[in-house]
């Protein structure tokens, strides 16, 4: 039966076409295996990163407002993609920009996105409890010390800077929340 099928195909397509088809199928199977082994958001969580609860409660709302607009990091093509109520919505859900509040899935995606922007340096920040936070791209791009298409976002020690640094420095939740709330207020 299998031989008949192969012979019929060979007769219909010719040997070269059949060989090309074989190469194509092999390539597609290889591509499938390759894609399945890509590191996704789940795998990325293996890297160290400061407190997720503080991030989702305080830091993500600030980043959503300041960085996650549709013309900046609220774009699918941009590094450090940020989802949120007023920006880009998660593709696995059916919300629209400006609609429902930021979802848990979006908060988790934002955490993964920020934590894995600079994973080795972020691991170091975790290991030294934030004392090397000023080495992170996240901090230096926001401060305008590294090239950033959106320009300088924060000044050192202003509420936005303290919001991010407080989280990276394992400050208590209330301290981080106060800085982040102060940073959000002028954006509303």
């Amino acid at each position: 039966m299998r031989r008949n099928v192969r012979e019929r195909l060979r007769a219909a397509l010719g040997f070269r076409s059949l060989a090309a088809l074989g190469v194509l199928v092999t390539g597609l199977v290889g591509l499938g295996f390759g894609a399945s082994s890509c590191v996704g958001e789940e795998g990325l969580k293996a890297y160290g990163c400061p407190n997720p609860a503080v991030f989702t409660a305080s830091v993500s709302p600030y980043l959503e407002r300041r960085c996650g607009t549709l013309d900046c990091h609220g774009q699918a093509t941009r590094p450090m993609r940020i989802y949120g109520q007023l920006g880009l919505r998660h593709p696995a859900e059916n919300n629209v920009s400006g609609g429902a509040s930021t979802t848990q899935l979006e908060l988790e995606a934002n955490y993964a996105s920020v934590c894995n922007l600079d994973p080795a340096a972020m691991q170091q920040v975790v290991d030294d409890l934030g004392s090397t936070a000023d080495k992170l791209l996240l901090v230096n791009k926001a401060r305008g010390l590294e090239r950033h298409k959106g320009g300088k976002i924060v000044n050192e020690q202003d509420p936005g800077d303290l919001c991010i640094l407080g989280w990276l420095g394992f400050k208590d939740a209330a301290t981080v929340a106060a800085s982040c709330a102060a940073a959000i207020e002028p954006l509303e």
Partner: peptide, 14 residues
């Protein structure tokens, strides 16, 4: 507007 405009001058982009 509920959000700020980060750097885009065309309203129609968003």
């Amino acid at each position: 507007m509920n959000s700020i405009i980060g750097r885009e001058g065309s309203c129609g982009a968003c």
